[in-house]
Design a binder for these strands. Structure first.
Lengths: 356, 356
DNA sequence: CTGAAAGCGCTTACAG
DNA sequence: CTGAAAGCGCTTACAG
C-alpha cells in the first residue's frame, strides 16, 4: 500500500525553510498586536466582520512580519483543495505541452495550482503517478490516459475522488467526464478535401486499428468515401505505429496492389514519415501523391512540402479541459458529460493541386 | 497582503472528495482493528518497530478500506514538503517544455511532485505566480526568471525560502544557485566554425545587447574573431528582438555598410527570420550567405536549408536543474553555486560550404 | 465585533 | 512493541 521507497519520505526529506527563520504564523501576528488568531484568520479570508481599524492593524503586521499564508494547513482544516492534478503522456510532445499550457493558464486564473505528472505512455508509471498525486489531495484530476490503461486500475488509484476529466482517450467502465477531439469529422474533412481535388483512390495510412481515435478517424474517412460513391479498399487501410520511422518503412505497402493517389494519414507524424518514404522511392509528395495529416504540429507548416492537416488548437483544448473540470468541481454529482471539440482543416501544399 | 480574489478562496472552493464517501483516515484504520493511530502511522512510514503480525493486520485493513495517505497533513505535522515549484516562461515554447519534462522526470523519481507555474515573460504575473506557489510551501523552487525581473521583488515573493535554483537568467542581488548554458563557448564554437569555412567578415545578429545571454554570446563571438586576427566591426553587431518577424525586417541592416558573408545569430528563431529576410532579397542562405543559430529547436533540422546551431539538450538541463535543487535541499546552508552547462555545435547546411 | 476551544489528518517524543 | 497526549498552522461554530 504505502511503499516507502522515495527519498522524500525517508530521512532525506527536507524542511521547507530549512536553514532560514521559522515561518511566521497567524499566532505570531495575533500575539504581536494583541488580538486572537481567529481575528487574524478573518482578516486573511477577507471577512467583513472585522472592525476596519483592527483589520488595518492586522494587515500592517502581516506585511511587517512578511507573513506567508499556509494554504496547506487551511485546506486541511477546511477540507478543501486548491490544486488540480494534470497527468499527460509527456511534455516533450508539443501537443501535450500546448495542452498543459492552456490547462495551467485557465486553472491559475481561478486560483488553482497545477500538480504535474507524466506517464511516458506507460500504464504502470501512470498508476504510480496517480497514486502519488492523489496523496496531495487535488480537488480534481485531468488525465490523458496512457495507451493500454485499464479503467479498473485507474479507478483504484483514484480512490473515491469523483472529480475526473479524461482527455483524448476514453476509458470505458469509468463514468468520468470526457473531452475528445472530433476525430471522425476531421478525417471526414480531409478525405472530402482530397475527393474534391479529384482523387478517387484514397488510402488511410497509420494508427492502430484497435485504438478508439484511429477507429473514429477511419469512420470519418469511410463516410466521406461513401458519400462520394467510392469504395473502401481493405488493402488501403494500412496500420503503423505513430512514429516517423515505422511510417516511412510501411509506405511501400501502398504500392502492393492497386496503387492509390492519395492518403489520409492518422496524424502528422505518420504523414511526415510517409512523405519521407515516398520521396525515397522517387514519388514526390504534393505533386505525385497527396497526403494529409492530423494535429497541425509545428513542423507541419515548415515541412517540405508543407502539410495539409487538421488543427486542433491544443492550448484552447487545455483551457476547455480546465473549464470542464471546474464545472465538475462545482457540481460533483452531475451526470458525466462527453464533450467533442471541433477540428479545422488547414490546407497546405502536401494535398497537391487538383488532379485528373 | 492576502488579496482574496481567486475563486478557490471564495465560496466556489471545492471539497476534495465532495459527493463521495468521507476520506478514510488513520483513525478509521486504527479503530477497525483495535490498535492506536500511532501504530498505523508507524506502519505507514515503514518503521521496523512494529510487530510483524500487527503490521500485516494494519496493511490488510489499509487495503480493505482503500486508505489514501494524506501527505499534506503529514507534511504539516512534520514540517516537511514533498513538492517543488517550477516556474517558467511558457510551456508553448518547446525549449521550456522539454526542460520542464526533464525537471518533472527527475523530481518524480525522488518522490517529489511538481507544482507548475508560468509567467508568460511578465514580471508582474511572475510575482503573482510565485506568491501563490509559495503558499503551497514547496521544498524548493526552480525559476527561469521573466525578462525584466527584479531580484528584490522576487526575493520578496519568496519569503525566507532559501532553496532556489535560477535557470537561464541570472538575477544579481540574489544569492541563489544558478544554472546557465555556456553561451560564450557556444558562440565561440559557431564563430570559429565559420572562420574555418573561410569567412572573414562575420556579423553577430539579433538579441538585446543588455541581456546577459546576448552579452555572453557576443563575447564568445569576439573571442573567436580575435583569435583569428579578425576585427569586430561595430556595424556588424545588429540587435533584434528574438522573434522571426523583427529578425527578417532587420536583415537589411547587414547590407548597409561593408557587407559580411556570414552571421552568427543570437538564437534559432532569429536565424530563421534572418534566412527569410535574406531569401526575400535574393540572397540564398547556406549558399550566398552562411548563418548559424543557437538552441537547436525542432524546426532547425527541417528548415530550408537546415540550420547549423548549438544543441543545449533542454531535457537534460531539466534533469540537471532538479538534481542541483535536490542537492540544495540536502544542504540549505551551502554557498550558492553557479553551474555552466555545455553546448554542442551541430553542423547543417545553413553554414554553407567552404568559401574563398 | 472579538476570543476561547475544538478539530482537520497526521507524527513524535514519552511512558509503559 | 504499543498507546495517550500534544501539536503542525489554520478555521469555524459558539459565546459574549
Amino acid at each position: 500500500m504505502k511503499k516507502d521507497t522515495s527519498a522524500a519520505k525517508g530521512t532525506r526529506a527536507s524542511t521547507p525553510r530549512a536553514g532560514a527563520a521559522r515561518a511566521v504564523t497567524v499566532t505570531d501576528i495575533a500575539d504581536a498586536i494583541g488580538v486572537s488568531r481567529a481575528t487574524v484568520s478573518l482578516v486573511l479570508r477577507g471577512s467583513p466582520l472585522v472592525n476596519v481599524d483592527t483589520r488595518a492593524r492586522v494587515e500592517a503586521e502581516l506585511r511587517r512580519q512578511r507573513y506567508v499564508y499556509n494554504r496547506g494547513a487551511a485546506n486541511l482544516r477546511r477540507r478543501t483543495s486548491t490544486s488540480v492534478a494534470l497527468v499527460i503522456n509527456d511534455l516533450s510532445n508539443p501537443f501535450f505541452a500546448e495542452f498543459a499550457s492552456g490547462v495551467d493558464e485557465a486553472l491559475g486564473a481561478k486560483g488553482y495550482v497545477t500538480l504535474l505528472g507524466s506517464t511516458g505512455e506507460s500504464p504502470e508509471r501512470q498508476q504510480a503517478v496517480l497514486t502519488t498525486l492523489m496523496e496531495h489531495t487535488p480537488a480534481g484530476l485531468i488525465l490523458s490516459p496512457a495507451e493500454g490503461s485499464d479503467a479498473t486500475e485507474v479507478r483504484q488509484a483514484l480512490g473515491f475522488n469523483a472529480n475526473v476529466l479524461l482527455f483524448n482517450r476514453e476509458l470505458n467502465g469509468g463514468d468520468w467526464d470526457f473531452l475528445t477531439l472530433d476525430n471522425q469529422q476531421g478525417a471526414y474533412l480531409a478525405t472530402r478535401h482530397l475527393i474534391e481535388r479529384g482523387h478517387q483512390r484514397i488510402a488511410f495510412f497509420g494508427g492502430h486499428a484497435d485504438s478508439s481515435s484511429c477507429h473514429q478517424r477511419r469512420t470519418g474517412y469511410a463516410q466521406a468515401l461513401a458519400e462520394a460513391g467510392l469504395k473502401v479498399q481493405p488493402d488501403w487501410l494500412i496500420e503503423s505505429a505513430p512514429n516517423r520511422l515505422e511510417a516511412a518503412a510501411r509506405s511501400g505497402e501502398l504500392f502492393a496492389g492497386e496503387v492509390p493517389t492519395a492518403a489520409v494519414c492518422y496524424n502528422d507524424t505518420v504523414a511526415l514519415g510517409l512523405m519521407l518514404g515516398l520521396a525515397s522511392r522517387g514519388v514526390q509528395p504534393g505533386r505525385d501523391f497527396a497526403v494529409t495529416g492530423f494535429d497541425d504540429i509545428s513542423e507541419a507548416a515548415v515541412a517540405m512540402p508543407p502539410l495539409t492537416t487538421l488543427t486542433v488548437n491544443p492550448r484552447e483544448r487545455g483551457r476547455q479541459a480546465a473549464e470542464l473540470l471546474l464545472q465538475r468541481l462545482d457540481d460533483p454529482t452531475a451526470a458525466p458529460r462527453r464533450t467533442v471539440a471541433p477540428v479545422q482543416l488547414r490546407i497546405r501544399d502536401s494535398s497537391g493541386p487538383a488532379v485528373g
